Computed example of a mutant assay.
Amino acid sequence: MTHTDLKTTPLCAACEAAGGKMVDFHGWLLPVQFKGILAEHKAVREAAGMFDVSHMGQFFVEGKDAWPFLQYINCNNIKNTLGVGTYSHILTEKGTIIDDAISFCLTPEKFLVVVNAACIDGDFAWFTKQAKNFNVTVRNESADWAMIALQGPKAVETADKVVAGASDLPRFHIKEIELFGARGYMTRTGYTGEDGVEIMLPNNKIVELWAALLAHGVTPCGLGARDVLRLEAGYLLNGADADQTRTPYEANCGWVVKLAKENFVGKEALAAQKAQGLKEKLTAFVLKSAGVPRAGCKIFVGAEEKGTLTSGTYSPLFKGIAVGYAALDVTAGTEVEIEIHGKRVKADTVKTPFYKNRV
Rank of each mutant, 00 (worst) to 15 (best):
L309T: 13
Y249H: 08
T189W: 02
V197I: 05
L201W: 04
A272V: 01
H89T: 09
G312D: 14
I148A: 05
T187R: 04
E157I: 07
S289R: 14
M186I: 10
E232S: 00
G239W: 06
G333T: 03
Q71Y: 08
P293E: 06
K267P: 03
T349I: 11
V228R: 05
H89N: 12
G333K: 09
A275E: 10
P316I: 11
K267C: 04
Q71K: 13
V61Q: 12
L209C: 03
C75F: 09
R294T: 09
K346M: 12
M186Y: 03
G217V: 07
K94Q: 13
T313P: 12
G217A: 07
S315Q: 06
V156A: 02
G27M: 15
W145T: 01
C15Y: 03
L29W: 13
C105I: 02
G307M: 13
T81C: 00
N77V: 15
A275T: 08
V84E: 09
P316F: 11
G234A: 07
T92Y: 09
Y185R: 12
K161T: 03
P170V: 07
T9C: 03
A240V: 00
I174A: 09
V61M: 13
V256L: 13
M56F: 10
N116L: 04
G20C: 11
T334R: 11
G296M: 12
E176H: 04
L231V: 02
E62Q: 14
L112S: 13
K306N: 14
R139C: 04
Q130H: 08
A182T: 02
D121C: 10
A155E: 01
T310H: 14
E62S: 14
V162T: 11
G307I: 13
G165S: 06
K298T: 08
A117S: 14
L112R: 05
A48R: 12
T283Q: 09
A159S: 07
E141V: 07
E232H: 06
